[in-house]
Design a protein around this nucleic acid. Structure first.
Lengths: 197, 197
DNA sequence: TCAGACTAACCGACCGTTCGGTAGGATCGA
DNA sequence: TCGATCCTACCGAACGGTCGGTTAGTCTGA
Protein backbone atom coordinates (compact mmCIF):
# COMPACT_ATOMS: atom_id res chain seq x y z
CA UNK A 1 0.00 0.00 0.00
CA UNK A 2 2.81 2.44 0.32
CA UNK A 3 4.15 1.86 -3.17
CA UNK A 4 1.01 2.83 -5.03
CA UNK A 5 2.41 5.16 -7.61
CA UNK A 6 2.09 8.52 -5.97
CA UNK A 7 2.22 11.64 -7.99
CA UNK A 8 5.49 11.78 -9.87
CA UNK A 9 6.89 14.42 -7.57
CA UNK A 10 9.84 16.10 -9.09
CA UNK A 11 11.82 16.49 -5.94
CA UNK A 12 12.79 14.56 -2.84
CA UNK A 13 15.32 15.30 -0.13
CA UNK A 14 17.52 12.81 -1.93
CA UNK A 15 17.30 14.48 -5.33
CA UNK A 16 17.83 17.91 -3.80
CA UNK A 17 20.87 16.60 -1.99
CA UNK A 18 22.40 15.37 -5.22
CA UNK A 19 21.90 18.78 -6.81
CA UNK A 20 23.14 20.66 -3.77
CA UNK A 21 26.33 18.64 -3.48
CA UNK A 22 27.19 19.34 -7.09
CA UNK A 23 26.63 23.06 -6.70
CA UNK A 24 28.50 23.17 -3.39
CA UNK A 25 31.47 21.52 -5.05
CA UNK A 26 31.58 24.07 -7.85
CA UNK A 27 30.87 27.26 -5.92
CA UNK A 28 31.82 26.23 -2.40
CA UNK A 29 29.36 25.87 0.46
CA UNK A 30 29.65 29.46 1.64
CA UNK A 31 29.67 30.71 -1.92
CA UNK A 32 26.39 28.99 -2.79
CA UNK A 33 23.11 30.81 -2.19
CA UNK A 34 19.78 29.09 -1.74
CA UNK A 35 18.65 30.95 -4.84
CA UNK A 36 21.36 29.25 -6.88
CA UNK A 37 20.43 25.90 -5.40
CA UNK A 38 16.81 26.48 -6.31
CA UNK A 39 17.67 27.42 -9.85
CA UNK A 40 19.86 24.36 -10.27
CA UNK A 41 17.05 22.14 -8.99
CA UNK A 42 14.40 23.81 -11.16
CA UNK A 43 12.36 24.88 -8.17
CA UNK A 44 11.83 28.03 -6.16
CA UNK A 45 13.87 28.85 -3.11
CA UNK A 46 10.98 28.49 -0.72
CA UNK A 47 10.12 25.06 -2.09
CA UNK A 48 13.45 23.72 -0.93
CA UNK A 49 12.31 24.30 2.64
CA UNK A 50 9.40 21.97 2.03
CA UNK A 51 11.85 19.08 1.67
CA UNK A 52 14.77 19.93 3.93
CA UNK A 53 15.16 22.16 6.93
CA UNK A 54 17.74 24.41 5.32
CA UNK A 55 21.16 24.86 3.83
CA UNK A 56 23.07 23.33 6.70
CA UNK A 57 20.99 20.15 6.70
CA UNK A 58 21.96 19.59 3.08
CA UNK A 59 25.60 19.87 4.09
CA UNK A 60 25.11 17.54 7.04
CA UNK A 61 23.39 14.91 4.92
CA UNK A 62 26.19 15.08 2.37
CA UNK A 63 29.16 14.77 4.72
CA UNK A 64 27.41 12.09 6.78
CA UNK A 65 26.96 10.00 3.70
CA UNK A 66 30.61 10.42 2.77
CA UNK A 67 31.82 9.53 6.25
CA UNK A 68 29.56 6.47 6.53
CA UNK A 69 31.04 5.14 3.29
CA UNK A 70 34.59 5.64 4.48
CA UNK A 71 34.03 4.12 7.91
CA UNK A 72 32.30 1.12 6.36
CA UNK A 73 35.60 0.22 4.72
CA UNK A 74 37.30 0.04 8.10
CA UNK A 75 34.89 -2.66 9.28
CA UNK A 76 35.32 -4.99 6.35
CA UNK A 77 37.27 -8.25 6.75
CA UNK A 78 40.13 -6.96 4.61
CA UNK A 79 40.68 -4.15 7.12
CA UNK A 80 40.35 -6.37 10.18
CA UNK A 81 42.13 -9.64 9.38
CA UNK A 82 45.66 -10.50 8.39
CA UNK A 83 49.02 -8.70 8.68
CA UNK A 84 48.85 -4.98 9.40
CA UNK A 85 50.63 -4.10 6.17
CA UNK A 86 47.97 -5.93 4.16
CA UNK A 87 45.20 -4.26 6.14
CA UNK A 88 46.87 -0.90 5.56
CA UNK A 89 47.13 -1.53 1.84
CA UNK A 90 43.52 -2.69 1.79
CA UNK A 91 42.27 0.46 3.49
CA UNK A 92 44.30 2.69 1.17
CA UNK A 93 42.93 0.96 -1.89
CA UNK A 94 39.40 0.74 -0.52
CA UNK A 95 39.37 4.41 0.51
CA UNK A 96 40.53 5.39 -2.94
CA UNK A 97 37.75 3.37 -4.55
CA UNK A 98 35.19 4.77 -2.14
CA UNK A 99 36.33 8.29 -2.92
CA UNK A 100 35.89 7.71 -6.62
CA UNK A 101 32.55 5.91 -6.19
CA UNK A 102 31.14 8.60 -3.95
CA UNK A 103 33.13 11.44 -5.47
CA UNK A 104 30.89 14.50 -4.95
CA UNK A 105 30.09 13.66 -1.35
CA UNK A 106 33.67 12.85 -0.37
CA UNK A 107 34.95 15.90 -2.20
CA UNK A 108 32.62 18.09 -0.20
CA UNK A 109 33.70 16.38 3.00
CA UNK A 110 37.36 17.04 2.26
CA UNK A 111 36.71 20.77 1.84
CA UNK A 112 34.89 21.25 5.11
CA UNK A 113 36.58 23.92 7.25
CA UNK A 114 34.57 23.92 10.48
CA UNK A 115 32.52 27.13 10.20
CA UNK A 116 29.20 25.50 11.14
CA UNK A 117 28.14 22.81 13.58
CA UNK A 118 27.69 20.26 10.81
CA UNK A 119 31.22 20.98 9.62
CA UNK A 120 32.75 20.67 13.05
CA UNK A 121 31.04 17.32 13.61
CA UNK A 122 32.36 16.11 10.27
CA UNK A 123 35.89 17.22 11.10
CA UNK A 124 35.74 15.26 14.33
CA UNK A 125 34.73 12.08 12.55
CA UNK A 126 37.47 12.66 9.98
CA UNK A 127 40.05 12.92 12.72
CA UNK A 128 38.81 9.62 14.13
CA UNK A 129 39.23 8.02 10.72
CA UNK A 130 42.75 9.39 10.28
CA UNK A 131 43.68 8.16 13.74
CA UNK A 132 42.62 4.60 13.01
CA UNK A 133 44.61 4.56 9.79
CA UNK A 134 47.70 5.94 11.51
CA UNK A 135 47.45 3.09 14.03
CA UNK A 136 47.39 0.65 11.14
CA UNK A 137 50.53 2.17 9.63
CA UNK A 138 52.30 2.08 12.99
CA UNK A 139 51.45 -1.59 13.40
CA UNK A 140 52.82 -2.35 9.95
CA UNK A 141 56.07 -0.56 10.76
CA UNK A 142 56.32 -2.50 14.03
CA UNK A 143 55.94 -5.72 12.03
CA UNK A 144 58.88 -4.67 9.87
CA UNK A 145 56.69 -4.60 6.77
CA UNK A 146 56.99 -0.87 6.18
CA UNK A 147 60.22 1.13 6.16
CA UNK A 148 61.20 2.02 9.73
CA UNK A 149 63.01 5.22 8.76
CA UNK A 150 59.77 7.06 7.99
CA UNK A 151 57.64 8.16 10.93
CA UNK A 152 54.35 6.22 10.77
CA UNK A 153 52.20 9.22 11.60
CA UNK A 154 53.91 11.26 8.91
CA UNK A 155 53.52 8.33 6.54
CA UNK A 156 49.82 7.99 7.26
CA UNK A 157 49.31 11.69 6.70
CA UNK A 158 51.19 11.67 3.43
CA UNK A 159 49.45 8.57 2.13
CA UNK A 160 45.99 9.84 2.95
CA UNK A 161 46.84 13.26 1.67
CA UNK A 162 47.71 11.47 -1.53
CA UNK A 163 44.44 9.55 -1.61
CA UNK A 164 42.39 12.63 -0.80
CA UNK A 165 44.12 14.68 -3.47
CA UNK A 166 42.52 12.44 -6.07
CA UNK A 167 39.28 14.30 -5.39
CA UNK A 168 40.88 17.45 -6.79
CA UNK A 169 41.21 16.16 -10.33
CA UNK A 170 39.37 12.87 -10.81
CA UNK A 171 36.41 13.00 -13.18
CA UNK A 172 34.18 9.94 -13.53
CA UNK A 173 33.61 10.63 -17.22
CA UNK A 174 37.33 10.82 -17.88
CA UNK A 175 39.54 8.09 -19.34
CA UNK A 176 40.84 6.84 -15.99
CA UNK A 177 38.84 4.33 -13.94
CA UNK A 178 38.76 4.18 -10.18
CA UNK A 179 40.51 0.80 -10.34
CA UNK A 180 43.33 2.32 -12.37
CA UNK A 181 43.81 5.12 -9.87
CA UNK A 182 43.67 2.74 -6.92
CA UNK A 183 46.22 0.43 -8.53
CA UNK A 184 48.61 3.23 -9.45
CA UNK A 185 48.26 4.77 -6.04
CA UNK A 186 48.81 1.52 -4.17
CA UNK A 187 51.82 0.70 -6.32
CA UNK A 188 53.28 4.17 -5.87
CA UNK A 189 52.84 4.03 -2.14
CA UNK A 190 54.42 0.61 -1.68
CA UNK A 191 57.10 0.56 -4.35
CA UNK A 192 57.79 4.16 -5.31
CA UNK A 193 58.45 5.58 -8.73
CA UNK A 194 61.96 4.30 -9.22
CA UNK A 195 62.31 1.11 -11.23
CA UNK A 196 63.28 -1.85 -9.05
CA UNK A 197 66.83 -2.82 -9.90
CA UNK B 1 65.22 63.50 2.17
CA UNK B 2 62.38 61.09 1.62
CA UNK B 3 63.38 58.64 4.36
CA UNK B 4 62.91 61.02 7.27
CA UNK B 5 61.05 58.96 9.87
CA UNK B 6 57.42 59.14 8.90
CA UNK B 7 54.57 58.53 11.30
CA UNK B 8 54.54 54.98 12.65
CA UNK B 9 51.39 53.90 10.84
CA UNK B 10 49.83 50.77 12.19
CA UNK B 11 48.81 49.25 8.90
CA UNK B 12 50.10 48.75 5.39
CA UNK B 13 48.73 46.75 2.48
CA UNK B 14 51.36 44.19 3.43
CA UNK B 15 50.32 43.85 7.07
CA UNK B 16 46.65 43.69 6.12
CA UNK B 17 47.45 40.96 3.62
CA UNK B 18 49.12 38.86 6.29
CA UNK B 19 46.08 39.17 8.53
CA UNK B 20 43.62 38.53 5.71
CA UNK B 21 45.37 35.39 4.51
CA UNK B 22 45.26 33.91 7.99
CA UNK B 23 41.55 34.65 8.38
CA UNK B 24 40.77 33.42 4.87
CA UNK B 25 42.50 30.13 5.66
CA UNK B 26 40.46 29.59 8.81
CA UNK B 27 37.04 30.74 7.64
CA UNK B 28 37.37 30.40 3.89
CA UNK B 29 37.39 33.34 1.50
CA UNK B 30 33.63 33.38 0.95
CA UNK B 31 33.03 32.73 4.64
CA UNK B 32 35.06 35.77 5.72
CA UNK B 33 33.36 39.15 6.03
CA UNK B 34 35.16 42.46 5.83
CA UNK B 35 33.94 43.06 9.37
CA UNK B 36 35.83 39.98 10.57
CA UNK B 37 38.90 41.07 8.67
CA UNK B 38 38.69 44.49 10.27
CA UNK B 39 38.37 43.05 13.75
CA UNK B 40 41.34 40.74 13.20
CA UNK B 41 43.45 43.68 12.02
CA UNK B 42 42.33 45.99 14.83
CA UNK B 43 40.89 48.55 12.46
CA UNK B 44 37.46 49.49 11.18
CA UNK B 45 35.95 48.00 8.09
CA UNK B 46 36.05 51.24 6.17
CA UNK B 47 39.71 51.82 6.96
CA UNK B 48 40.67 48.71 5.09
CA UNK B 49 39.60 50.45 1.88
CA UNK B 50 42.19 53.14 2.50
CA UNK B 51 44.94 50.56 1.97
CA UNK B 52 43.52 48.10 -0.54
CA UNK B 53 40.77 48.33 -3.13
CA UNK B 54 38.67 45.57 -1.57
CA UNK B 55 38.29 41.97 -0.58
CA UNK B 56 39.19 40.53 -3.95
CA UNK B 57 42.44 42.50 -4.16
CA UNK B 58 43.57 40.89 -0.93
CA UNK B 59 42.90 37.50 -2.47
CA UNK B 60 44.70 38.44 -5.65
CA UNK B 61 47.76 39.68 -3.79
CA UNK B 62 47.87 36.47 -1.78
CA UNK B 63 47.60 33.97 -4.60
CA UNK B 64 49.96 35.97 -6.80
CA UNK B 65 52.60 35.78 -4.10
CA UNK B 66 52.11 32.03 -3.76
CA UNK B 67 52.31 31.45 -7.49
CA UNK B 68 55.39 33.63 -7.94
CA UNK B 69 57.18 31.55 -5.32
CA UNK B 70 56.25 28.28 -6.99
CA UNK B 71 57.19 29.41 -10.48
CA UNK B 72 60.52 30.73 -9.25
CA UNK B 73 61.47 27.17 -8.38
CA UNK B 74 60.96 26.10 -12.00
CA UNK B 75 63.54 28.60 -13.21
CA UNK B 76 66.32 27.58 -10.88
CA UNK B 77 69.34 25.62 -12.21
CA UNK B 78 68.25 22.46 -10.39
CA UNK B 79 65.03 22.45 -12.40
CA UNK B 80 66.70 23.27 -15.72
CA UNK B 81 69.93 21.27 -15.85
CA UNK B 82 70.71 17.59 -15.67
CA UNK B 83 68.70 14.40 -16.18
CA UNK B 84 64.92 14.80 -16.17
CA UNK B 85 64.50 12.50 -13.19
CA UNK B 86 66.82 14.69 -11.13
CA UNK B 87 65.01 17.83 -12.24
CA UNK B 88 61.71 16.19 -11.37
CA UNK B 89 62.95 15.24 -7.91
CA UNK B 90 64.36 18.75 -7.46
CA UNK B 91 61.04 20.39 -8.30
CA UNK B 92 59.12 18.05 -6.01
CA UNK B 93 61.44 18.79 -3.13
CA UNK B 94 61.64 22.49 -3.89
CA UNK B 95 57.86 22.82 -4.20
CA UNK B 96 57.42 21.09 -0.89
CA UNK B 97 59.86 23.47 0.80
CA UNK B 98 58.24 26.47 -0.84
CA UNK B 99 54.83 25.31 0.36
CA UNK B 100 56.09 25.07 3.91
CA UNK B 101 57.97 28.34 3.75
CA UNK B 102 55.03 30.25 2.32
CA UNK B 103 52.37 28.11 3.96
CA UNK B 104 49.43 30.50 4.41
CA UNK B 105 49.69 31.91 0.91
CA UNK B 106 50.08 28.54 -0.81
CA UNK B 107 47.31 27.04 1.31
CA UNK B 108 44.96 29.77 0.17
CA UNK B 109 46.02 29.23 -3.44
CA UNK B 110 45.26 25.52 -3.22
CA UNK B 111 41.73 26.19 -2.02
CA UNK B 112 40.80 28.58 -4.79
CA UNK B 113 37.72 27.38 -6.68
CA UNK B 114 37.27 29.96 -9.45
CA UNK B 115 34.31 32.01 -8.26
CA UNK B 116 35.94 35.38 -8.88
CA UNK B 117 38.21 36.80 -11.54
CA UNK B 118 41.23 36.65 -9.26
CA UNK B 119 40.51 33.00 -8.58
CA UNK B 120 40.13 32.10 -12.23
CA UNK B 121 43.43 33.79 -13.08
CA UNK B 122 45.11 31.85 -10.30
CA UNK B 123 43.66 28.55 -11.50
CA UNK B 124 45.03 29.24 -14.95
CA UNK B 125 48.53 29.82 -13.64
CA UNK B 126 48.23 26.67 -11.52
CA UNK B 127 47.33 24.64 -14.59
CA UNK B 128 50.41 26.01 -16.34
CA UNK B 129 52.55 24.93 -13.40
CA UNK B 130 51.06 21.43 -13.34
CA UNK B 131 51.60 21.11 -17.06
CA UNK B 132 55.29 21.91 -16.83
CA UNK B 133 55.75 19.38 -14.06
CA UNK B 134 53.90 16.69 -16.01
CA UNK B 135 56.29 17.29 -18.91
CA UNK B 136 59.20 16.74 -16.56
CA UNK B 137 57.75 13.43 -15.38
CA UNK B 138 57.13 12.31 -18.95
CA UNK B 139 60.73 13.09 -19.88
CA UNK B 140 61.99 11.09 -16.92
CA UNK B 141 59.87 8.10 -17.94
CA UNK B 142 61.20 8.41 -21.50
CA UNK B 143 64.73 8.30 -20.08
CA UNK B 144 63.89 5.05 -18.31
CA UNK B 145 64.50 6.63 -14.92
CA UNK B 146 60.91 6.36 -13.72
CA UNK B 147 58.73 3.27 -13.89
CA UNK B 148 57.17 2.97 -17.34
CA UNK B 149 54.07 1.11 -16.13
CA UNK B 150 52.61 4.23 -14.51
CA UNK B 151 51.18 6.90 -16.78
CA UNK B 152 53.33 10.03 -16.39
CA UNK B 153 50.36 12.39 -16.27
CA UNK B 154 48.72 10.30 -13.60
CA UNK B 155 52.03 10.14 -11.79
CA UNK B 156 52.47 13.90 -11.88
CA UNK B 157 48.98 14.41 -10.57
CA UNK B 158 49.45 11.97 -7.74
CA UNK B 159 52.83 13.35 -6.74
CA UNK B 160 51.65 16.93 -6.71
CA UNK B 161 48.47 15.95 -4.97
CA UNK B 162 50.75 14.47 -2.37
CA UNK B 163 52.85 17.61 -2.08
CA UNK B 164 49.82 19.87 -1.93
CA UNK B 165 48.15 17.75 0.72
CA UNK B 166 50.92 18.79 3.10
CA UNK B 167 49.19 22.16 3.36
CA UNK B 168 46.23 20.43 5.01
CA UNK B 169 48.09 19.43 8.13
CA UNK B 170 51.53 21.04 8.31
CA UNK B 171 52.00 23.53 11.14
CA UNK B 172 55.23 25.57 11.30
CA UNK B 173 55.23 25.47 15.09
CA UNK B 174 54.91 21.68 15.13
CA UNK B 175 57.71 19.16 15.64
CA UNK B 176 58.27 18.45 11.95
CA UNK B 177 60.51 20.71 9.86
CA UNK B 178 60.00 21.46 6.21
CA UNK B 179 63.23 19.62 5.44
CA UNK B 180 61.92 16.51 7.18
CA UNK B 181 58.70 16.60 5.19
CA UNK B 182 60.53 17.19 1.94
CA UNK B 183 62.92 14.33 2.63
CA UNK B 184 60.17 11.89 3.62
CA UNK B 185 58.10 12.91 0.66
CA UNK B 186 60.92 12.60 -1.83
CA UNK B 187 61.90 9.23 -0.44
CA UNK B 188 58.32 7.98 -0.50
CA UNK B 189 57.83 9.11 -4.06
CA UNK B 190 60.99 7.53 -5.39
CA UNK B 191 61.35 4.39 -3.28
CA UNK B 192 57.93 3.66 -1.80
CA UNK B 193 57.07 2.44 1.65
CA UNK B 194 58.17 -1.14 1.27
CA UNK B 195 61.64 -1.95 2.58
CA UNK B 196 64.11 -2.61 -0.20
CA UNK B 197 64.97 -6.29 -0.15
C1' DT C 1 -12.51 17.64 -0.76
C1' DC C 2 -8.32 17.42 1.17
C1' DA C 3 -3.33 16.57 1.83
C1' DG C 4 0.87 17.56 0.03
C1' DA C 5 3.89 19.92 -3.48
C1' DC C 6 4.75 24.09 -4.71
C1' DT C 7 4.99 29.41 -5.25
C1' DA C 8 5.14 34.79 -4.92
C1' DA C 9 5.97 38.00 -1.81
C1' DC C 10 8.23 39.24 1.88
C1' DC C 11 11.36 39.60 6.33
C1' DG C 12 15.27 41.15 9.20
C1' DA C 13 20.09 40.59 9.07
C1' DC C 14 24.16 41.10 7.04
C1' DC C 15 27.08 41.68 2.90
C1' DG C 16 31.00 44.56 0.50
C1' DT C 17 31.52 49.09 -0.40
C1' DT C 18 31.19 54.27 -0.19
C1' DC C 19 31.20 58.74 1.80
C1' DG C 20 31.68 62.78 4.72
C1' DG C 21 34.33 63.97 8.22
C1' DT C 22 38.28 64.16 11.81
C1' DA C 23 42.79 63.85 14.29
C1' DG C 24 47.22 65.10 14.01
C1' DG C 25 51.94 65.04 12.02
C1' DA C 26 54.47 67.28 8.03
C1' DT C 27 55.36 71.30 5.36
C1' DC C 28 56.01 75.97 4.41
C1' DG C 29 55.76 81.19 4.07
C1' DA C 30 56.81 84.98 6.81
C1' DT D 1 58.89 80.51 15.68
C1' DC D 2 54.42 80.13 14.53
C1' DG D 3 50.08 79.91 12.38
C1' DA D 4 47.91 78.29 8.01
C1' DT D 5 47.53 74.64 5.14
C1' DC D 6 47.90 70.09 3.40
C1' DC D 7 48.05 65.10 3.59
C1' DT D 8 47.59 60.48 5.41
C1' DA D 9 45.39 57.27 8.29
C1' DC D 10 41.43 56.44 10.19
C1' DC D 11 36.40 56.34 11.72
C1' DG D 12 30.95 56.27 12.05
C1' DA D 13 27.11 55.95 9.39
C1' DA D 14 24.81 54.59 5.76
C1' DC D 15 24.27 52.64 0.91
C1' DG D 16 22.07 49.26 -2.40
C1' DG D 17 21.95 44.62 -2.69
C1' DT D 18 21.83 39.74 -1.29
C1' DC D 19 21.57 36.45 2.26
C1' DG D 20 18.94 32.32 4.54
C1' DG D 21 14.57 31.72 5.92
C1' DT D 22 9.20 32.50 6.60
C1' DT D 23 4.41 33.26 5.52
C1' DA D 24 0.14 32.87 3.40
C1' DG D 25 -1.86 30.95 -0.06
C1' DT D 26 -2.43 28.36 -4.86
C1' DC D 27 -2.46 24.33 -7.53
C1' DT D 28 -3.09 19.43 -8.37
C1' DG D 29 -4.15 14.61 -8.32
C1' DA D 30 -6.57 10.98 -6.10
Amino acid sequence: MPAVAKRADRHTPESLLAVAVDVFNVRGYDGTSMEELAKAAGITKSSIYHHVSGKEELLRLAVTRALDGLFAALDEPGALEGPAVDRFAYVVRRTCLELVRNLPYVTLLLRVRGNTGAERDALERRREFDHRVADLAAAAVADGDLRPDLDPRLTARLVFGLVNSVAEWYRPDGPVTGETVADALGSLVLDGLRPRS
